[in-house]
Design a protein around this nucleic acid. Sequence first.
DNA 1: ACCGCCACCCAAAGCGCTTTGGGAGAGTTT
DNA 2: AAACTCTCCCAAAGCGCTTTGGGTGGCGGT
Lengths: 342, 342
Amino acid sequence: MNLKELSRHLNLSQTTVSRALNGYPEVSEATRKRVQEAAHALNYRPNARAKGLATGRAHAIGHVIPVSNQHEMVNPVFGDFIAGAGSTYAQRGYEIVISLVDDSQEEEAYRNLRTRGSVDGIIMHGPRMDDPRIPLLTELGLPFVVHGRASDINMPYSWLDMNNARAIRRATDFLLDLNHRRIALINGLEHMDFAHRRREGYLAALTDRGVTPDPELMRGEEMTEIYGYRSARDMLATDDPPTAFVVSSMMTAIGVRRAIHEIGRVMGRDVSVITHDDDLSYLKNGENIPIFTATRSSVRQAGVLAAEMLLRLIDDPGQEPQHRLLEAELIIGTSTGPAPTR
Amino acid sequence: MNLKELSRHLNLSQTTVSRALNGYPEVSEATRKRVQEAAHALNYRPNARAKGLATGRAHAIGHVIPVSNQHEMVNPVFGDFIAGAGSTYAQRGYEIVISLVDDSQEEEAYRNLRTRGSVDGIIMHGPRMDDPRIPLLTELGLPFVVHGRASDINMPYSWLDMNNARAIRRATDFLLDLNHRRIALINGLEHMDFAHRRREGYLAALTDRGVTPDPELMRGEEMTEIYGYRSARDMLATDDPPTAFVVSSMMTAIGVRRAIHEIGRVMGRDVSVITHDDDLSYLKNGENIPIFTATRSSVRQAGVLAAEMLLRLIDDPGQEPQHRLLEAELIIGTSTGPAPTR
DNA sequence: ACCGCCACCCAAAGCGCTTTGGGAGAGTTT
DNA sequence: AAACTCTCCCAAAGCGCTTTGGGTGGCGGT
């Protein structure tokens, strides 16, 4: 059932039917109703491609997610982010187009989305410190919102970020207040902007209290469980082990916990752990009593807000770039306690 | 830059340019080369919508993922599956369109994808026992592949599944061989087909050895960490606690482990745990020595294979429905050991 | 010299929608 | 009654491609 058939069926022109369905005023309410009913009854749905061709709008949003083939990883955070964004899109009738793209050919992917016209806007994931994608997207002229920021880029662009520096700073301060001085940082890959900022927050907290950061206590890798385990195990086996860990993700913190358990220590008593918690749906940080003391910020919510921001940008393109900085909440769990006195 | 401009630039007709670029034989190799070079130089890329309109093919695959709004969960397995499928699509120039859909309006979503013509085929996720989507998709006539199966549906359709029954049966047998008799099953939601089959495998293993299944030792919920923790904690606190757990996901097994630790028991010695492992990229089951004894089957690989199957179906639609049953591998880790003698 | 056959190329129609630029008829002013 | 003004509706062009149905010129065969 297409427009032509429907209009013939109604003894109306395609113009009128199209207008009736799209809410234009040049059609009487009586006919509009008649058209709508017929459309519903005959199960008519406009063809998306034709509509797109005619209007120049794809009614779709592109999410390009970098898949570094060395790691073969897809960020676990992505599922929840997209779920949040998706709920916003759904309300507005937008589709989600996902491109999984090898690091090496990201530029090509973005250009493709642009020139092939498959999307009206893009959400960019996983920005690095000096991310070339930002100037590229700006040049392409396609509306986009960055989930995160890029520290070394100072051209204007729209972003939505969590205050990583402050969150980790608070976390570190929390441990310092508990008299910890040997505090390890189990960070994400530090060419990623969020990880860089977290490190800055960690360092600032330490130096402000006159604690000299120890390179032996700082790591930055892909945030797997194994990585947390390995890092904690190694660090705890040294002569001067950390008494506390600041960890970049729940998944990794679980690995840290495993290492602590393995050597018969008790988390929260012998060794403290504080982690960032993205509030993932399948990995909630406990129920009433949180497992981990954590800085919490819902990535799902970030998805909702980023999508709203992008749709605003698409709706009127003349707008200034928009920004939104989310603050993490500090959740006190049972994984932290005063530094053990020797 | 569009076809018209490009062809004018080359002093050729649109027809010839189009044919040259799409590899039709009616054009001399000399002109073809000339056209290709110009296209590349001028950064020409055909408009996807126009191409789609003309050919009737969207060059996109739809993934409709159910988002039960009661749970507000997006399956963590999804990220890896889509990464696998995406690598296949990328090679063939297909895009991924994702619809996140509330359980209640799934039918509408599928009909939409069909009649709006945004995709050439669909991969269906999370089939339930008697899933109405299968007859619906068959009726719609859109090629589709189910990731999983639906036990109560006996019409033909294409699917790719893991042998859930056998995997869990092997897992249970493994524990029985170690002399465990009080074996708990921490399953997924049992209206999901995979969970149903796992339960069948578990029950078959027990009854074959003359062990009467105890309803107190069987649970089925959304596979979060918390759920694993809570279930194990409760069961271990009873008068006749299980000595072993069969768990449906790594995430949940981690929760089980937490409960075991919490009461000061040692996993693998006091309490055994065997889990299914989807081999998720960010949650690898250890490195050389697996943490958990597990039945392993890569969901990423499943994504690759399902995508290939679907593309075959799209390429020649006259084909019979295809099937593929993957077997899980049994990985021996340190989380299992002989049943403690009282 | 004629015919037929390739090899190459082209004009134009068509995919299913939106949108421009009217146009007919009823009602209102003057 | 003529001149406007609305209100509703329509025909046709256009979005950027593919594809149908030729056309043209060169070559070999008779």
